[in-house]
Simulated scan of single mutants.
Amino acid sequence: MHHYSARGVHGQTVEVLAQRILTGELAEGAILDLTALQAEFDVSLTVLREALRVLAAKGMVDARPKRGTFVRPRSSWSLLDGDVLRWQFARSPGPGLFDDLHELRSIVEPGAASLAAARATDDDIAALDAALAAMAAAGADPLAAVAADLDFHRALLAATHNELIQRMEVVIETGLAERDRMVHGAGGPRDPVPSHKAVVDGIRRHNPAQAARAMRKLLDQAIEDVVRLERTRREDRQD
Rank of each mutant, 00 (worst) to 15 (best):
R20G: 13
L32G: 09
D149S: 10
V108H: 04
E224C: 05
A159H: 02
A131K: 03
D42G: 13
P142K: 12
A198N: 03
L55R: 04
M215V: 03
R154I: 15
P93H: 09
E224S: 05
R49P: 01
A131S: 08
H2L: 14
L34H: 04
V43H: 00
Q221S: 10
G188P: 01
G139I: 07
R86P: 09
L34F: 03
D42V: 15
F41D: 00
A90K: 02
R181P: 12
P93V: 12
D201T: 15
H206Q: 13
W87V: 06
R74N: 11
D81Y: 09
A209W: 02
G59A: 07
M182G: 01
D236I: 15
W77I: 04
A116W: 01
R167I: 08
H2V: 14
A120T: 04
V183N: 12
R234G: 06
R237N: 11
P189V: 10
R105K: 14
I165F: 03
H102Y: 13
A198C: 01
G82N: 09
Y4S: 06
A30C: 09
D122V: 11
A158I: 05
G94S: 10
P208A: 07
V61L: 02
A6L: 09
R231A: 13
K217P: 01
Q19F: 06
H3Y: 08
I125W: 00
A198Y: 00
A155E: 06
E235F: 10
D83T: 12
I223F: 11
R86K: 15
D81Q: 07
Q221T: 09
D151F: 10
D62Q: 08
A155Q: 06
R7E: 12
A120N: 03
A138D: 00
P95S: 13
Q38C: 07
H3M: 10
V47L: 11
E25H: 14
L164Y: 03
F89R: 01
A140K: 08
V71H: 02
R67G: 02
A137S: 04
A113V: 15
L176H: 09
P93K: 10
Y4W: 08
G185Y: 00
P93I: 06
P189E: 13
D239V: 15
S5H: 10
A177E: 15
M1Q: 12
L34K: 11
L219M: 07
A211C: 03
R231P: 00
D236E: 15
T35H: 07
